[in-house]
């Protein structure tokens, strides 16, 4: 969450004025301002989470599928981890690949927008944001049409004998491509924000100190954009790992991700509620752990 706040805030934290503690009137006001957000979080985040946790420990009445009783059934977690390990692996792999490709596409784009676009900057910005004007389900369904066997891309590739399986939809390639496409703006915007704020004089100073273009980029520009890169990768990886729409619409039965399993356990398996809840918690814990390690390794003080 701090990553998000960072993207939005234009000024660096610790700006003058915020440091000195003020009399109680001001702190009361601060609490008052926090109240709506806190209530929102409590009602729509904490309570459902606690509820979900109790569900994840429930057991089923033997012989009465679909009926549960309160229990401390840790076995649900064990089942979630062992039985669905391939799905967890696939989710992390696909999300990782999508993050990587999104980064490869987004960095040059953000760089161009920040430094080279000139008067086209506004137009490019709109083009990056424009997809949000339509539902992302619709856009993903549209990709089904574009990538269809008789669509332009698949038929061209097939004519050139470049498509081994003869199709794009219902393969992992389509899933990763869909994820990359859907989360690309979340990568572009933070990187753009941090590049745009970078002090041009510092970059020029690199040239003044006889560094060539690449060295300047490696030692000056890239480190300055790291907060944006970090925020972008998190904003792409976390939702991508839990996504099920792309795998459902573009993938096949062999490319299901953990989100699909949670959906099927919740909605399609009679008595799957506890497992689905346990899967949700395991996914949360897994992502939290990964993000923690990642931010520890690459994070800057500015971000945390």
């Amino acid at each position: 969450m701090s990553a998000l706040a960072h993207v939005g805030a234009g000024t660096a934290p610790g700006a003058p004025g915020a440091a000195a503690p003020q009399p109680t009137r001001k702190s009361k006001l601060a609490y008052l301002l926090l109240l709506p957000g806190a209530v929102w979080l409590l009602v729509f985040f904490v309570i459902p989470l606690v509820q979900l946790f109790t569900v994840s420990l429930q057991s089923q009445f033997p012989g009465y599928p679909g009926y549960y009783y309160r229990d401390v059934n840790v076995g649900n977690y064990w089942r979630a981890l062992t039985e669905f390990a391939p799905h967890f692996g696939r989710s992390l792999l696909f999300a990782g690949l999508a993050t990587f490709f999104a980064f490869c596409l987004a960095y040059p784009l953000a760089y161009a927008m920040a430094f080279k676009a000139g008067r086209w900057r506004g137009v490019m910005m709109i083009l990056v944001i424009a997809p949000f004007f339509t539902s992302f389900i619709l856009r993903t369904v549209a990709w089904r049409q574009i990538l269809a066997d008789e669509g332009p891309i698949a038929s061209t590739l097939n004519a050139l004998h470049l498509l081994p399986g003869g199709r794009i939809t219902e393969t992992w390639i389509a899933v990763v491509a869909g994820l990359t496409y859907n989360f690309l703006p979340f990568m572009v915007l933070p990187i753009y924000a941090s590049l745009e704020r970078a002090d041009h004089r510092v970059i020029e100073a690199g040239g003044d100190l006889y560094a060539n273009g690449f060295t300047t980029f490696r030692t000056v520009t890239l480190p300055m954009s790291m907060p944006g890169v970090l925020a972008g990768t998190l904003l792409t990886f976390i939702p991508a790992a839990g996504d099920y729409v792309n795998a459902e619409l573009l993938g096949s039965d062999g490319t299901k991700m953990i989100g699909n399993v949670i959906e099927s356990q919740f909605f399609k398996v009679l008595g799957g509620f506890p497992i689905a809840a346990a899967l949700s918690f395991t996914l949360m814990a897994l992502i939290l752990a990964l993000v923690f390690v990642y931010v520890r390794k690459f994070g800057t003080e500015e971000l945390l």
Partner: peptide, 11 residues
């Protein structure tokens, strides 16, 4: 049966 079937469907 529906649990078995969901497995077949990759879930």
């Amino acid at each position: 049966f529906s649990a078995i079937w969901q497995k077949v469907m990759g879930n």
